[in-house]
Design a protein around this nucleic acid. Structure first.
Lengths: 227, 227
DNA sequence: GAACACAAGATTGTATACGATTTTGTGCCG
DNA sequence: CGGCACAAAATCGTATACAATCTTGTGTTC
């Protein structure tokens, strides 16, 4: 049933939780009780704690001493900073990717985009968002930069949380064209264009968020009273 | 004996070990037995494991299943990638810092440089290296970019490991002039110059490493047989 | 009726115990 | 004498138990 040589169970659980957060099945602020999580996955609190600590290190969950673990609620400042970090890392990485990309890579990227469209068509917005993030990570992998890819992985996951908190419903699928145009630039080995497209794509993403006001960190209390 | 309201003990232990690695008191490849570390710090393996997992996440130690924790030995590839990541993050961050820096920040940076020189004069090369890294992190803090500062913190720590493995003894203190020149650019609020200086400083650092040959990852075996 | 004090409940922090896996030492066999 | 097999030791992986801390409910007092 399991894959042949799986990582430690805590890694597996951390990934499961991270995926749920990424796909917005676990909204920001959700409590992750150690007992509860342990019961769900059939393991003891020891391994759950390891998983939660890893997620806390990635800033996906917040650990409050003697209070428990909660899905993180990125602050306005953090939201800005995450996209500023991405703006430093991703455009130049896209340029490198364009210079190194192979036919196999292009095919893989195309499958990614197709899967994203399918998920969107099936109404699985969360999954589409997850795949959209994977697209960015894949570019870093194509650029053959594991270290940067890891940072981007982390930033993409945090971006997903930021979107969960600050997304202002409006034109939703500017994504489609952006990713498609980016892929064409990559296919043409046009590094300069790829860099420029990635840069503006990230700016578009940022500007589609509602980063005004909301003075304090949106506590779950605020969410509850908002309705 | 303890500080008033310390973090969890595992955080404190992780920092202690990270500092030891940073200052080259713990060479790459060192084994970090859970029992041994626990005895040294007077805690159980539970908290030691948490500390080691955090360090593993930062890539300072490598966790091998059923084998134990070892101080990481960065590969050639990782060495290159770390400095490429720094090259993407730090120059632009230095520019931002130059635009925002205050008198208080400048005084703090000056104290950093002074402490670095003192350590060097006192023959504490490891401590000087640590302070030199702090200088880079401080610049990110001045740029008011916590998220990027965190990444740089991680990259600086890994750089310290890389230096431990790949440093070729030669002119050692190009650092002094580089950091001083950088500080002058910051003081003059000359963002473009600061960016350029940081860029070439990182290139200098990289070129002072011996990244040739050593085909495989340098196992501790090789070290042992080298003498 | 409101505010405070205290106690019961729940949840996390840490230690210890046991099982699984790897390493290493020893002895037999070719 | 070299190589393999097996057993003992060491070390990590996980579960469980207890202590510390926080939350929350209740009763008393003003």
């Amino acid at each position: 049933m399991d894959l042949p040589s799986r990582d430690t169970s805590s890694d597996s659980i951390a990934e499961d939780i991270a995926l749920a957060i990424h796909e917005h099945r676990l909204p920001p602020g959700s409590k992750l009780s150690e007992d509860e999580v342990g019961e769900i996955f059939g393991v003891s609190r020891t391994v759950v704690r390891a998983a939660l600590q890893r997620l806390a290190h990635d800033r996906l969950v917040e650990l409050r001493r003697n209070r428990g673990a909660f899905v993180a609620q990125p602050s306005l400042r953090e939201a800005r900073e995450v996209f500023e970090a991405r703006a430093l890392l991703e455009p130049r990485t896209a340029r490198s990717a364009a210079e190194r990309i192979t036919e196999a890579d292009l095919a893989l990227l195309q499958r990614h985009i197709d899967a994203e469209h399918e998920a969107l068509a099936a109404g699985q917005a969360g999954r589409a968002l997850y795949l959209s993030g994977k697209f960015h990570i894949e570019i870093a992998r194509i650029a053959d930069q594991d270290t940067i890819a890891e940072f981007i992985t982390q930033l993409v996951a945090r971006s997903s949380l930021i979107i969960a908190v600050y997304w202002q419903r409006r034109g939703a699928l500017c994504e489609r064209h952006a990713h498609h145009a980016l892929m064409r630039a990559l296919a043409a080995h046009d590094g300069a264009l790829a860099e420029e497209l990635m840069k503006s794509h990230l700016l578009d993403l940022l500007s589609s968020l509602d980063l005004r006001s909301r003075t304090a960190a949106p506590s779950s209390l605020r969410e509850a009273l908002g309705g």
